[in-house]
Amino acid sequence: MDERIEELDHCDLSGIHPESIQQAKEKMPKEEHLLDLADFFRIFGDSTRVKIVCALLSTELCVCDIAELLEISQSAISHQLRVLKQARLVKARRAGKVIYYSLDDEHIEAILSLGLTHIKEK
């Protein structure tokens, strides 16, 4: 890392920009929302879950279809779908004996799209 940048990362003084501190404090979300947000993004920390979400971008799929598409066992897919469902990223619809999964709402697609756009900028 550039030594000049390292020097800027450390302040010898504290609180020298009270207006900036106040502005940041006013925009800071509540602590409980920050914790929920951290948990939400932690869900995307597993590549299998991200693959499942990507698979569900175009259509709803059952566990068997997702397992075949991703070449992962049905039990592993079921486990990850439970995590995604608990986090309200996917929803389930029963049709007879088959349960179909889809994204919970359009926000999930937007979040994934923004993340991919950011990654592709590099």
Rank of each mutant, 00 (worst) to 15 (best):
L61C: 02
E71C: 00
A92E: 06
A92F: 05
R93C: 01
A67N: 03
K27L: 14
I66C: 06
L116T: 04
S113W: 00
S102F: 04
Y100I: 02
K25T: 13
M28T: 14
F41G: 05
I111A: 12
Y101N: 04
I16K: 12
G15Y: 00
A95Y: 07
Q80R: 11
A92L: 08
A24V: 00
C62Q: 01
D2V: 13
E121K: 10
G96V: 06
M1I: 04
Q86C: 13
F41K: 05
S14W: 12
V50N: 01
E60F: 09
M1Q: 07
S113M: 01
H79F: 07
I5K: 12
E31R: 15
P29H: 00
S20A: 11
C54G: 09
R82K: 07
A95K: 11
L81E: 03
H33E: 14
I52H: 03
E31I: 14
S113A: 00
P29W: 02
L112Q: 01
G115Q: 07
K120F: 15
D65S: 08
E71T: 06
I119Y: 11
A55N: 01
I111C: 12
D46I: 04
F41I: 06
Q86G: 12
E68Q: 12
Q23E: 14
D36C: 12
I99L: 08
E26D: 10
I99H: 07
L56C: 02
L57G: 03
R82T: 10
A87I: 02
D104N: 14
Q22T: 10
V98C: 07
V83P: 09
L57A: 02
I5V: 14
K122S: 01
K91F: 05
L89P: 03
F40C: 14
K51D: 02
S78C: 13
K27C: 09
S58A: 12
Q23H: 12
G45C: 06
L69P: 03
G115W: 05
I99P: 02
S14P: 08
S20M: 05
E6D: 07
C54D: 09
G96Q: 03
Y101R: 01
P29G: 06
V53C: 04
D39G: 08
L35D: 15
K91L: 02
F44Y: 14
S113D: 08
C64N: 13
